[in-house]
Design a binder for these strands. Structure first.
Lengths: 334, 334
DNA sequence: CTGCGTAATGTAATCGGTTACAGGTAAATT
DNA sequence: AATTTACCTGTAACCGATTACATTACGCAG
């Protein structure tokens, strides 16, 4: 309730002196400093940041656009983002878009009306799947893909997927099913390329029937797996494009009496906390979410504060983690 | 970049008319309205919400204090909170405290300096485990306990726990282990009371050795379960105070060759998405997180806007969900 | 003693909206 | 015709900080 003027009056100095005492104390005499601090303590003064932000035309907040916060993969990101933002004195405005462009626009408007200084985009985007973010607003894609435009932090999805499928091939698998995300999702596109790279290398023909489309939820993985159960010529391994779908798929497969990994190997992607604790534990690709979040936030704040960027895209390494859900193919079949 | 004065000049009206055209168009003639809208379109005017908020001494943002956003139980809450806030024109400032009071204070300061209008507290609190939030700042506990002070939305943890343990007893279990949260956590206290209520009713003596302390993480559940494996007189059922610890515990038990539910029944609490998909699927208590989040946000906004509260505490019903992790005790023992 | 540099402080403008208050005009009432 | 009323509009104060610029005091060199 008390303003800087109340403090000034009580301390017997001017408002300018109070302001300086707080933001550049070295410019103020010790005598004044003491009087000011005493007055502040006496009236319980708390600076009104709304006024400060208004004056400086900055909100010191950034929007984090996330398709679904309940997705465990995104929560790791968000935690890292929030951590870094907090360190640098910025607040994180949570923008759960639920995958709809309308909500995304709502948050973009927040930046245009000065309620936020920039955007971290967690939805992957490429030229095709446009993000409707005007080019003049600071934005970093923390979860980019091969063809993401603008500043981005990403992993090499294609290479990581290839690594995984190469591994399955090295275990003797030749019929390898895929549980993909939605067809036009850039992650799906990149990872599918990696899959194709691997099988082409191994001289395996691409079979469209081996691709089951999901949407990165556990439920969709559970459903997608049925496609493989009922096949006459069942795949011996399944490459799922994320862990949640893999876990859902394992549920279906086990329920159908298919043993994992003995009858079928299953792999995931992301290495969410759960991948280690499901049964069997999941062979997967670990993304450095912590690191990616920090770098994305650093990059965004640098753009906001007008500092030059050393690089506009950053590709971080992934880790390939072998657990219990994969095994060599059984040679004695049927 | 363009301000309301630019628009006024171009439209040939006063700034007051422009302001009114935007916030109370019914008070402005059609002629003026048209001129104003034309001018707005021409210069691409976007109101500066920082100025508006500054003037109205409101930030239209609320802090959501969450111990750990990566905890799947909290993410459900947050999604509901964000949803409702967005509907009402408020932003959600994410406050991941990582369980530390320092970070909590940091966010409380945000409210004191006007960067947020109120707080949703997800950490349960009671008189004993104080939340250091000054009483003059609007705050609602969205995840309260029996002795939570101040406005709160909660479930009846004690009764829910009793229901669960009653069920285990009805299946013939007499030695029922507990995996609890940290001892002084209010949820732990409430749920332990429920456990005690149930066994007392059934004439079972309370055995301190049957209580293994965890901290609500999967990892802690995994460790706590060892306590039961090595017991001479093993419990036939384990009541875990949340799903994550239950899932961790099942991992340990299965690794030790203990079959679930044949050799030991395991139950959880919360009904996170994963509870349905783990192996075996988990018998648990479902909290209406969606509903609780919405109600908590509504209550907070009502307090912020100075409307009267019909009630200061709201206890919502839980749902008891029986799945595959529980079964009648085997009478032919050893 | 004058002039100049430095340090500390104060005065007042400023940011971009909102809104109290004061006109001004035209229709309705007396 | 005079007065009231309703409606629309404009002027300017205001919110609480920051900060450019002016002012004052003081020490020191010339």
């Amino acid at each position: 309730m008390s303003s800087i003027r109340d403090v000034a009056r009580l301390a017997g100095v001017s408002v300018a002196t109070v302001s300086r005492a707080l933001s550049m104390p070295e410019k103020v005499s010790n005598e004044s400093l003491e009087k000011v601090h005493a007055a502040i303590a006496q009236v319980g003064y708390k600076p009104n940041m709304l006024a400060r932000n208004f004056r400086s035309a900055r909100s010191y907040a950034v929007v984090v656009l996330v398709p679904d916060i309940a997705n465990p993969f995104y929560s790791l990101f968000i935690r890292a983002l929030e951590d870094r933002a907090q360190q640098k004195g910025y607040a994180v405005l949570l923008g759960d878009t639920r995958g709809t462009p309308e909500r995304e626009l709502e948050y973009i408007r927040r930046v245009e009306t000065r309620l936020a200084d920039g955007i971290i985009q967690l939805r992957p985007s490429s030229e095709k799947s446009q993000n409707n973010i005007p080019s003049d607003i600071p934005c970093v894609n923390a979860c980019g893909c091969e063809y993401t435009t603008g500043p981005a932090i990403r992993i090499d999805n294609r290479a990581a997927a290839k690594t995984m499928v190469d591994y399955l091939i090295s275990l003797g698998h030749r019929r390898i099913g895929v549980i993909s995300g939605l067809k036009d999702n850039p992650h799906t596109v990149d990872r599918l390329e990696g899959y194709k790279d691997a099988i082409r290398n191994a001289g395996i023909e691409y079979d469209r029937d081996l691709i089951a489309e999901g949407d990165f939820t556990m439920w969709s993985g559970l459903n997608a797996a049925f496609q493989f159960c009922n096949m006459k010529n069942r795949p011996t391994a399944v490459f799922s494009m994320n862990d949640e779908m893999a876990i859902g798929a394992m549920q279906t497969l086990k329920a159908q009496g298919i043993r994992i990994p003995d009858d079928m190997s299953v792999t995931g992607f992301d290495d969410i906390a759960y991948a280690k604790y499901c049964d069997p534990s999941l062979t997967t690709i670990s993304q450095p979410a912590e690191e990616m979040g920090k770098m994305a936030m650093d990059m965004l704040l640098r753009i906001i504060e007008g500092e030059p960027l050393s690089q506009t895209e950053c590709v971080l390494p992934t880790e390939f983690i072998i657990r219990k859900s994969t095994s060599p193919v059984k040679v004695v079949a049927q």
